[in-house]
Design a protein around this nucleic acid. Sequence first.
DNA 1: CGCGACGTTGATTTGCCTCAACGATTGTGG
DNA 2: CCACAATCGTTGAGGCAAATCAACGTCGCG
Lengths: 201, 201
Amino acid sequence: MTEVNSTRLIEYFAEHVPISDEEKEIIRNSHELRHVKKKGLLFEQGSHCTLEAFVLSGSFRIFHTDSKGNEHVLYFAFPDWWIGDIASFYSGEPAGLNAQALEESIVLTINPDTKEVLFNKIPKLERIFRIITQKHLTVVQKRLLLSYSASAADRYHELLERSPGIEQLVPQHQIASYLGILPESLSRMKKQLMRSKGNSF
Amino acid sequence: MTEVNSTRLIEYFAEHVPISDEEKEIIRNSHELRHVKKKGLLFEQGSHCTLEAFVLSGSFRIFHTDSKGNEHVLYFAFPDWWIGDIASFYSGEPAGLNAQALEESIVLTINPDTKEVLFNKIPKLERIFRIITQKHLTVVQKRLLLSYSASAADRYHELLERSPGIEQLVPQHQIASYLGILPESLSRMKKQLMRSKGNSF
DNA sequence: CGCGACGTTGATTTGCCTCAACGATTGTGG
DNA sequence: CCACAATCGTTGAGGCAAATCAACGTCGCG
């Protein structure tokens, strides 16, 4: 079972660099299969985040709860995505993020020590994670700049372009949270957009 | 001359992983020393960003100009920082960022092809850049969440804590730009802060 | 000196928040 | 299988932080 499900992760790595059979075995043995129930938490703010997870099936929201108790979605994760709290994972500090399953989900997890061993055994994996992290960084940088320069409506359109079909996958109030606005505001915004779009016919 | 100045970069790498004399030579030969005049641009929005630069002396602002012509500072860079437009550097797409020297500055630059060769010759450098990128990512993620959850005043305090002395290094209107607000708003905010702080004595 | 860059202040507007109430839908325990 | 609660989206009234537009003083510098 585990072997079967690790297959997707191996394929994923192999898309970046060639992986030998021996290395595949090492990768398989470094990860653990884990089921997460709907609304189940993979890691939690305040506790040490001791895992990074590769999503095999299902979906997650990674969010932060601020001092006023409000939740802010940092990103959503779907199959082939990695989730984790990098700062906590590598430093041992308490996590600043939560990862919650939006539905019944299956992931492959790895802990910090095992990941370090894995990097030592297969150094070329460092390259893959460098590239993944760079891609993630460019997206977050773009979102930061948009949060300064663009209206909520513009950010909404940017999200829809970058993640088509997102509206069918996550409830609207969580999209609002991702955009940094309240559900009420998104609801009003959509009404406005419908009106101006509708009028143009 | 070049050798002398490359020293800091070698030291910087050596803080992460051991570097042999032979490798030092490779690193030296991969980078070019470059002087940048005050207000000079290291790379520019719309053109392919063909360099990453390690700051030896001076300082930079990395900013984006939006469709309305407004500039937004993504970050400031000081000695020991890397600057570049990752997306453009690796993909060849037009850059979305500008890098401008705030003062007379000196950097070491590397181009994409040379960097790839460098990674092949010294694979353990991948690890260093993975770690650098991760650190950068955590900072940007935190700023993104703060832009949603915190007031401009809170973001201002966060900046001062994370970069003490920044006010002596960068003009106030550029700090406002970094915070995502207008210079007028920062000015008013500081007056307010002075008042409430002053009153507590 | 004169010009441009920078910071300040004022008056007004606006995008989004806050608080509150209310249907519709989902799901769940009795 | 129904009854009730929870979740989700919508709508309204009012408020606030920051933007906008405009004017003005100061400083540094070619």
